Structure formats: C-alpha cells, structure tokens
Amino acid sequence: MLFIDESLSYRLAARLATEFAGTLAVPKVAVLGEGSRDSRVWEYAQEHNLALLTKDKDFVDYWRRFGPPPKVIRLDIGNNMQVRSIETLMKTNKRRVLEFLAEPKAGLLVLIG
C-alpha cells in the first residue's frame, strides 16, 4: 500500500486508489494530520507496512540511514508538476511499482518524471 507524503497532493490517494488499492495520504491520517514531522511519518509507515511515496529527498536519507522498512518511492520531479501528471507517471510505471513492492529485499525506487 502507498503512503503519500505531504510533499505531494493528498488528492493523489483517490486518483491512484484503483491502480494501487489502499493508498493513503499523510494529511488524511487522523493520528498524523497536516504538518507531521518526517520522523513520525517514517515511523507510521514502518508500523503499518506502507511504502512512502514522496518527492522529498529527506526520506531517501532516512532510508540510507535506517534501511527499510518502510520502502521509499521517490519521484524525481519538479516542484510544479501537476497532480494529473504525477498520476500518469505512477500509472505508467504501475508494473515497476508493484514489482518493487513485492520484492522483499527492495527498499528504494526512483521514478523520474
């Protein structure tokens, strides 16, 4: 299941739900809410077996420092990429993402948009 970081729009959760069932967005998780610290988001993803979807390089640093879980999918995109374009990027790479999520030893996937 994907866990969309606040660096991306929470609207992605609904847009990706058909392709990636159970997708959540950080601001919509009651115990986290908006403005959650990265360390708390990381812990929540770890505790709930979620893969972080982010454009924030800080989570790659967490991954390097602590290793998985959680897995991290980093979108290497500009700050102005529209939700629709991010949705397309994820759906175009659906097979890669699902293979990454299924691979027990995988920890980081970078998608370039």
Rank of each mutant, 00 (worst) to 15 (best):
L98G: 00
I112T: 11
A45F: 09
E34R: 12
A51Q: 08
M90P: 01
M1K: 13
L52T: 12
F100A: 03
Y44K: 07
F20I: 03
V72N: 05
D5W: 08
F59W: 12
D61V: 15
R96G: 08
D61L: 14
P68E: 08
I73E: 01
S9C: 09
K71M: 05
E6Y: 05
D58K: 10
F59G: 01
R40V: 10
V110T: 15
V29E: 13
G33V: 09
I4Y: 09
L89V: 04
G78V: 14
N80C: 11
L24Y: 07
V26Y: 08
W63T: 07
L111R: 02
I86Y: 09
N93K: 08
A102T: 04
F59T: 11
S7H: 07
F100H: 03
D56H: 12
G35K: 01
A45Y: 06
I86G: 10
S7T: 15
F66D: 13
I4D: 07
A51D: 06
L12G: 06
L89Q: 01
F66Q: 10
A102P: 03
R37Y: 02
A25K: 11
D5R: 04
V31A: 06
S7P: 09
Y10P: 07
A102H: 10
F100C: 00
T92C: 00
E99A: 14
E34T: 09
N49V: 07
K57E: 04
D76G: 00
I112V: 09
G78E: 12
D38G: 13
A106F: 04
K55N: 13
F3P: 07
L12P: 05
I73N: 02
P104T: 10
V97Y: 00
R64E: 06
Y10F: 10
E47G: 09
G22C: 03
Y44A: 02
T92H: 02
F59V: 08
K71V: 10
V26L: 03
A21M: 05
G35D: 00
F20V: 03
V97A: 02
R84K: 15
V29H: 06
L16V: 03
M81C: 11
L52C: 13
G22Y: 03
A13C: 08
R11T: 12
A30W: 06
M81A: 11
A21V: 11
R84E: 11
T18D: 13
M1A: 14
V26K: 03
V26T: 10
R95Q: 14
E47H: 15
I86H: 15
G67C: 09
T88N: 05
I73K: 03
N93H: 14
I86A: 13
G113P: 11
A13K: 14
V60Y: 09
A13D: 09
D61K: 14
I112Q: 11
R64T: 05
L50N: 07
V110M: 06
